[in-house]
Design a protein around this nucleic acid. Structure first.
Lengths: 116, 116
DNA sequence: CCGGCATATCGACGATCGTCGATATAGCTG
DNA sequence: CAGCTATATCGACGATCGTCGATATGCCGG
């Protein structure tokens, strides 16, 4: 299963009950797994937290490459994975591409995991 | 990075602030990524929800193989991944191995994702 | 002690991932 | 227009993953 098969941008918001509430069917399991897979990488987690922490709650690739310690193509790749997963938005202004958290995206995933 | 490098059983409970609160350092990012990676598979998500939904909140491999539609070795493998990640416990009684949710394990992960 | 069952481990396979350097694209500056 | 800079895409590589069938382990009933 490729990280985000064909469709770009998953709507993480639209889903079901927490996974401990009732048995997950195959489709819901695949959707949630896709979201989790996008998050399940140290570089991407750090990117998310760096974007959130950056002034104005947005950051461009140039802000992220050096502190992350990975090459520019790799950073762009991870950002694309996060955008395709619906976790970040990309807005290009001039030469720069600015990334922001999608409000509620992380929370939707968290809500599906929580047991209470 | 192998799914759970050498140490069995991660203590998911002991960690830091939500990832949007402050920038994650490399170690915390790696730990959280390891937990998420364990969850980021449709079969494993369904196993968790099936265990939670099963009577007595526990289930043995024999209960899970057929509804999941995967071979017995594959199911055992996924269960081991979840045990090593600290999400499930295994207790052997006679010929059977019973798996249970670790209370709070999913919630700890969820707490790290939430932005509010 | 033997046969059968439940489970775990092993070894293999094809598929996917994370990373990089090289290159393409696009916008700004002069 | 020419050159620079920021970013994205491409193609490749080694590593990891999910799956399976075959086999090992461990337990129970006769």
């Amino acid at each position: 299963m490729p990280l985000a098969e064909l469709l770009p941008v998953i709507d993480v918001t639209a889903c079901c009950a927490p996974l401990t509430r009732e048995p997950l069917d195959q489709n819901n399991a695949a959707d949630l797994a896709r979201s989790l897979k996008a998050l399940a990488d140290p570089a991407r987690l750090r990117l998310i937290s760096m974007v959130a922490a950056h002034e104005g709650a947005e950051a461009c690739v140039c802000d992220l490459t050096e502190p992350l310690g990975l090459s520019q193509p790799t950073v762009s790749h991870h950002l694309k994975v996060l955008v395709d997963a619906g976790m970040l938005t990309r807005s290009k202004r001039g030469t720069w591409a600015y990334y922001r958290l999608v409000p509620g995206a992380l929370d939707s995933v968290a809500r599906l995991l929580v047991t209470a």
